[in-house]
Computed example of a mutant assay.
Amino acid sequence: MSKQQKEEKMAEVEGKSLQEPAGDAPVQTTFEEEHLIYIGPTLPIGLSRYATFRGGKPAYLLDYLKSVPTADALFIPVAELSSSLKELSVLGSPLKTAYEVVQATLKGGA
């Protein structure tokens, strides 16, 4: 994927458009790094609840996330923390289910 395609994809995700301006005006784009917060149970691999990350998930978590893919849902954008915590308190919601699966994995139940 080219750099422009990546930028367009990021802009699409952020709800922005990167269309070329008319004339010779310079293109000004701003891309914020992805800020994530983990809202799952504290894990013995060195991941605490409410740990925040700038620029995505750290490499040391990738093996764990491969072994427990449900945990990936518990990394949310910081801007969505309030609504996600509300969802986390609702029985049967996707976030609550993901939390319970990770918690069961810690106890050896899944």
Rank of each mutant, 00 (worst) to 15 (best):
G92K: 10
L95Y: 14
V101N: 07
T42P: 09
A25P: 01
F75P: 00
K107H: 10
R49Y: 02
S17W: 06
Q19D: 14
T70W: 01
S83G: 02
P94N: 05
Q28F: 05
L36K: 05
E87R: 05
K6H: 08
E87F: 02
I39E: 06
E33F: 10
T52H: 02
Y99N: 05
V13N: 08
I37G: 07
G40L: 09
G15E: 13
A22N: 11
P94Q: 04
L61W: 03
F53H: 04
Q19V: 14
V27T: 14
P94F: 08
A51N: 13
S84M: 03
L62K: 02
E32S: 12
L106W: 10
E7S: 07
A59I: 07
Q5G: 02
E20L: 14
A73D: 06
G46R: 07
P58H: 06
Y38A: 11
T30A: 10
F31Q: 09
E32V: 06
T30F: 07
I39M: 04
G109T: 05
P69L: 05
V78H: 06
Q4G: 01
A51P: 00
E33N: 09
F75M: 02
G108R: 11
Q103D: 15
Q5V: 11
R49W: 06
A71W: 01
F31K: 09
L88P: 03
L91I: 10
L18M: 12
A25R: 13
Q103L: 15
A98L: 09
K9Y: 12
Y60G: 00
R49N: 13
I45H: 12
E100I: 08
E100C: 11
Y60Q: 02
E12K: 15
V78C: 12
L81K: 15
K16G: 01
P41C: 12
Y60V: 00
L85S: 00
L95N: 04
G108S: 09
K3F: 09
A73R: 09
L106V: 05
L74K: 00
L74W: 03
E12Q: 15
Q19W: 04
M1Q: 12
K9Q: 15
L106Q: 13
E14A: 14
A110Y: 08
I39H: 02
D24C: 05
P94S: 11
H35A: 14
G15V: 09
A71C: 04
I76T: 00
Q28R: 09
L91Y: 07
Q19P: 00
V27L: 15
L74E: 05
L85Y: 02
K96P: 00
S48K: 11
Y99P: 03
V101M: 09
P58S: 04
G92R: 09
K6E: 14
E7M: 13
G46H: 05
E80P: 00
